[in-house]
């Protein structure tokens, strides 16, 4: 991102933000509420266009074709009418993978994400943490080069976090090293484990 600026109405939400993320890097973006962390993601997912500056990937302007990023929204955005397994494979389905194949790919990962036995449940039947992990699995399984996690707080609880990060490596597979931007609030309260996942903190605009 080079000198990116976004103005919504009268408010300069982002002003002259520059950020470089290298191959295999975990970057977490910290800042107080309203600092514009989620706005960065809206730029990257194409929900918003920058008013100033440019966004590049491998030195070329970023293509918003849905091939680059796997996005995990702040709220889990699980579809209440789909069973967990079918929520998890949504991204694969959009990519054109047949449902049966997508399910077969997703099922082995349920254990590592602490969701085994809940494949056929509806989101309303899961706890908040489990919903977050399902949303994370839905993100990871898309196997995109870059993952954007907006406050993935599911990993703040102890044991599932270990499992999640293990699952992360598994799902990332050979493409590996998912570069990950994760804006998180209240970072000081986060366990050390997570801080170690986020190796660089960028002050917000």
């Amino acid at each position: 991102m080079r000198n990116v600026g976004v103005t919504l109405g009268e408010t300069a939400v982002l002003d002259d933000v520059s950020l470089h993320v290298g191959q295999g890097e975990f970057v977490s973006i910290l800042g107080p509420s309203g600092a514009g962390k989620s706005t960065l993601f809206r730029l990257l997912t194409g929900a918003l266009a920058p008013d100033r500056g440019e966004i590049l990937r491998d030195c070329a302007p970023l293509k918003l074709d849905g091939q680059t990023f796997a996005f995990m929204p702040q709220r889990d955005a699980l579809m209440p009418w789909r069973r967990i397994i079918d929520n998890v494979i949504l991204g694969l389905e959009v990519q054109g993978v047949p449902r049966a194949e997508a399910r077969a790919r997703a099922l082995p990962l349920f254990v590592e994400f602490g969701l085994e036995g809940f494949e056929q449940r509806y989101p309303a039947e899961l706890s908040g943490g489990m919903r977050q992990r399902a949303a994370l699995l839905r993100t990871v399984i898309q196997a995109r080069p870059i993952q954007l996690l907006d406050e993935p707080s599911a990993c703040s609880t102890r044991s599932p976090a270990h499992r999640c990060s293990a699952g992360w490596k598994t799902a990332g597979g050979p493409r590996a090293g998912p570069r990950c931007l994760s804006p998180m609030m209240c970072a000081r309260r986060w366990p050390f484990r997570i801080a170690s996942m986020c190796c660089r903190a960028v002050p917000p605009a």
């Binding site: 929900a47 849905g66 990023f69 996005f71 929204p73 955005a77 009418w81 389905e93 990519q95």
Partner: peptide, 29 residues
């Protein structure tokens, strides 16, 4: 339809028709 679900689907590269079928239509039921 939950706007976050639509944002999510667009981030996945879903077409407008796919968003309608997978998100907007079930939301209307």
């Amino acid at each position: 339809t939950d706007p976050e679900i639509e944002t999510l689907m667009r981030s996945m590269g879903a077409s407008r028709w796919k968003v309608f079928r997978a998100a907007r239509f079930p939301s209307a039921m």
